[in-house]
């Protein structure tokens, strides 16, 4: 595990195996489970942002392109360079946190600003100079850093990525950090449309969406999470949309399968 400190933001490049090690090991076929105290949540996708909109219909046919998320709370000079992932992440993080300050955060994204990364790779391949602004905002902890500057909030943040299970691993990261000394954690997940150059390498259809969960050990509401080795063929939709189906009340229990595991969510009062 490596840590890199920049402006109060810690990037943790955690491998899947290291995160897997956090879950107690069990025999193949058996389930590991944990529960998280959920205080509130917010989500965004092109065309829907309020909880009412998410509750109105299941997130089945989300617009793959569509508008970018509104982040009017960020100063225009800071906002101008932000890409679609940062905009979606900041939108849900700000709405979920409201007036609260000092809440530690977990920022998660499978791809980050992949369109920017691709632009830089093309520039490098062509022997061109790489744009400093593009580089600075393509790094995985960029959204956390900009959020911290925009809200003048120095709460610690980690940034994680773990393939198609990124959101699930962010839940485990949040679980590991919740404690009586750190009773609240804001989990923020966001991904944007994948550039066409990469679509053939990705199994599931990817649609832009973002999700923020405020976890608070004093909350009576519980998000139960169970994982096991893959028990079905991989799901044709993203993990976040599966979780949103449960959060928005469209389904009491959802099961999602990725390349490495099957995950199951349910909501309950403790």
């Amino acid at each position: 595990m490596t840590h890199e400190k920049t402006e109060g933001v810690t990037t943790r490049n955690t491998t899947l195996l290291e995160l897997r090690a956090l879950i107690p090991s069990t025999a193949p076929g058996s389930m590991d489970s944990f529960s998280l105290p959920l205080a509130t949540w917010e989500a965004w996708a092109p065309g829907r942002s309020t909880r009412q909109e998410w509750r109105a219909s299941p997130p089945e046919a989300l617009d793959p392109a569509g508008a970018t998320a509104d982040i009017g709370f960020v100063d225009p000079m800071l906002r101008r360079r932000l890409g679609p992932v940062a905009r979606a992440a900041l939108n849900v993080a700000h709405r979920c946190l409201g007036e609260r300050t000092g809440v530690p955060m977990v920022f998660a994204s499978r791809h980050g600003e992949l369109a920017r990364t691709l632009t830089m790779l093309k520039d490098l391949a062509a022997g061109e100079e790489v744009s400093p602004a593009t580089f600075s905002l393509s790094v995985h902890n960029a959204s956390a850093g900009v959020f911290s500057i925009a809200r003048q909030d120095t709460a610690p943040a980690t940034a994680i990525s773990a393939g198609d299970e990124t959101l699930g691993m962010a839940l485990i990261e949040a679980l590991a950090r919740l404690s009586p000394e750190q009773p609240q954690i804001l989990l923020v997940y966001a991904d944007a449309a994948v550039p066409e150059r990469y679509t053939q390498d990705i199994a599931s259809a990817e649609t832009p969406h973002a999700l923020a969960l405020l976890l608070d050990i004093r909350s009576p509401s519980r998000l139960h999470v169970a994982t096991q080795r893959p028990s079905t063929v991989p799901s044709d939709h993203m993990m976040g949309l599966s979780l949103l189906n449960v959060l928005a009340g469209h389904s009491p229990r959802e099961t999602w399968t990725g390349e490495r595991g099957t995950w199951q969510w349910t909501l309950a009062d403790a």
């Binding site: 000079m77 100079e129 744009s131 400093p132 602004a133 600075s136």
Partner: peptide, 11 residues
């Protein structure tokens, strides 16, 4: 403008 702008402008 900020320091990243200075670098960007230089390029």
């Amino acid at each position: 403008l900020d320091s990243i702008d200075a670098l960007e402008l230089g390029v």
